[in-house]
Design a protein around this nucleic acid. Structure first.
Lengths: 137, 137
DNA sequence: CTCGCTGCAAACGTTTTGCAACCCC
DNA sequence: GGGGTTGCAAAACGTTTGCAGCGAG
């Protein structure tokens, strides 16, 4: 735990080691609140605010990722219900549409061929993270 | 506008027509707040609460979709930074990991071959929406 | 005429902030 | 010892809810 943190350039405090350990222990994709509960047993005084701050620095350091979910607060809507994918620009925070029937078909065929043991997919969407290119010239 | 609403089985009120029109006019993927601002010029008394309720019913009716984003409130974290995809269960709200190097390669090759005009991708993640199958037998 | 929708405002849950005390480096 | 981190509490933020009055069907 200590190594993971120091290697990421973060100060290895008691709290951060517990929080990172708690996050790793939770195999689901927990919220800050769930991580806090997980850790509360070992460190009753560790505050929820600290969990938020720690998770934030983990994300910045690249130790941890945020999972994109469609529920929760700060929702965004899309009036276009035809199948399409999204390009997320890390620079401008823009979300651009990307439509590509060939890609749809490719993925669909792959998933159909592969099959899942205990999951019945009915749709999918590819999130492509990157940066918009500003062409000069 | 009226047709779209009635065909979706919704009551075509003044406010809903304006809200749906505003959402369609915004080509980005706006938040409820942004839709409200867009509509405010035409209908200053239209309240933000109404926008929320209208957008909700649009989503239920299938007229509009929610876009999954990693920022905003109700965040979820993932300590696993290795490339993997997510299965979203509509029944249990669970988020299951799905790891498939072959799929990764397939998509990566496709994107590389296709290329983008003004976007430099650096990672991607497939969101597969469906339902967990409870096997009885 | 009825039932669903609107507007308002208050409530809610989650995340962020400010600041003094603390402790890792 | 110094500067990043913690804990606490307050504030901010986006969203939801309750309810009286309104209006589409």
């Amino acid at each position: 735990m200590r190594d993971l943190l120091t290697r990421a350039g973060l100060r290895a405090t008691q709290q951060r080691m517990l929080i990172l350990g708690g996050l790793l222990a939770l195999r689901d994709h927990p919220t800050a609140e769930q991580v806090h509960r997980q850790v509360a047993a070992k460190a009753p005084t560790l505050s929820l605010g600290t969990v938020y701050k720690a998770l934030d620095s983990f994300v910045v350091a690249g130790l941890v990722k945020r999972v994109a979910v469609a529920d929760g607060a700060a929702r965004r809507y899309d009036a276009d219900c035809s199948p399409h994918h999204h390009l997320f620009c890390t620079a401008t925070q823009e979300i651009l549409d990307y439509r590509d029937p060939q890609l749809d078909q490719l993925i669909q065929e792959f998933l159909a061929a592969r099959g899942f043991e205990n999951f019945q997919p009915h749709s999918f969407s590819l999130h492509i993270i990157g940066e918009k290119i500003i062409r000069s010239a």
